[in-house]
Design a binder for these strands. Sequence first.
DNA 1: CCAAAAGTGTTTCACTTACACCCATGA
DNA 2: TCATGGGTGTAAGTGAAACACTTTTGG
Lengths: 229, 229
Amino acid sequence: MPHTYDYPRPALTVDCVIFGLDDEGLKVLLIERGIEPFEGQWAIPGGFVAPGESVDAAAVRELQEETGLKDIYLEQLYTFGEPDRDPREHVVSVAYYALVNLIEHDLEASTDARSAAWFSVDDVPDLAFDHNQIFDMALTRLKGKVRYQPIGFELLPKKFTLTQLQRMYEIILEKPLDKRNFRKKVLSLEILKALNEIEKDVAHRAARLYSFDERAYRRLQRKGVHFAI
Amino acid sequence: MPHTYDYPRPALTVDCVIFGLDDEGLKVLLIERGIEPFEGQWAIPGGFVAPGESVDAAAVRELQEETGLKDIYLEQLYTFGEPDRDPREHVVSVAYYALVNLIEHDLEASTDARSAAWFSVDDVPDLAFDHNQIFDMALTRLKGKVRYQPIGFELLPKKFTLTQLQRMYEIILEKPLDKRNFRKKVLSLEILKALNEIEKDVAHRAARLYSFDERAYRRLQRKGVHFAI
DNA sequence: CCAAAAGTGTTTCACTTACACCCATGA
DNA sequence: TCATGGGTGTAAGTGAAACACTTTTGG
């Protein structure tokens, strides 16, 4: 298609910071670049936006190509538009972040030919382009948002114990929480469905399983009740 | 410059939701489009991003062209990337919002030839493109952010009374605040500098003037103290 | 029976809310 | 002197934080 607006224009990409949680802590998925620039260096997965493809759709596609997963929590983070962020030409990148549940989906050996690996968020190497800046913003956003919106559930299996939930918050917020107060608080929010099931294969008393009740959450939200940990 | 990445690419614009506060309430600056598409319809000011121009710089430039003002609070809002948001071709827009102080800068008669006007945020007409959606998101962001970050001061003159400050919050949050509790709260935050000045030309007891103490705010922020109204 | 985590209430303290009158000033 | 907004304190209520032991289960 010819350009209707006949101006030169920057190139447009999406980049996607993919977070996962396992028993070691919070992880981020990085790929090793196979081509210049920054060949051999780690980077956040991303790719070009084609004309006619919505930017959101490009991010979903990128995430699917990288993890093989669909229906993952994905949120736009920020758009990075400095002209020198790519050494070749002006490339504007719309960054997203995604939350995937590494406990249910074992993604150790990632998808395609390119080398991909999960890094602890405390141990991220020097990345290509301005990707350290993008990663830092994503982590800051996650830490800020998890306290006010029930997005942390996306990092857990559908059915989880209160201890798993507490541990998730402790890892992301980087501070210990009081067990009794935590349980009182989350149960009082009335957004958890207590299941008639208990965890399996543990060498101690099995804990009750819960699931996030999105319907109840939305109902409360409409009433103006605010979620907070 | 030839494109190093030889892909077709969407066009890229910035749009800027400009908020102002006067004694009638919260306003937004709109311009009347002089060309197709949506000729004659109101729209949020915006324009194309040139290759080599940072996206932030394009927003600053746009804001300056529209209001004649520099050093205005400007924050990136969201990037809108649906392919059908412009009827001609795929145009991705990085939206920003700005806060200007209409009390000090009287911008009634705006700048350039294009017709521009301030609209009450409660009375915004049907806008071009997806600009109603952009405006709604900007207003939601402002309402949410003003409670946790001291951005509301950007809408006031440098020197203001506590009543002006309270009124600003009442207008944006759309709810009345208790005068004594409000004063107790904002003064206890210790981010206001009490000036040895009082307001002028009022037909009643003149109120003390205050200014926002950004240095004190940053100091508290580093200590982990959180601002909230 | 032992190890390991599950589960459970009460008290204290801080902060938020509700509320009404006198004061200073200019017209 | 009157109209207008400026400025101030206290008591009650609500929610957050601190804190330790008993129970259940599998090994």
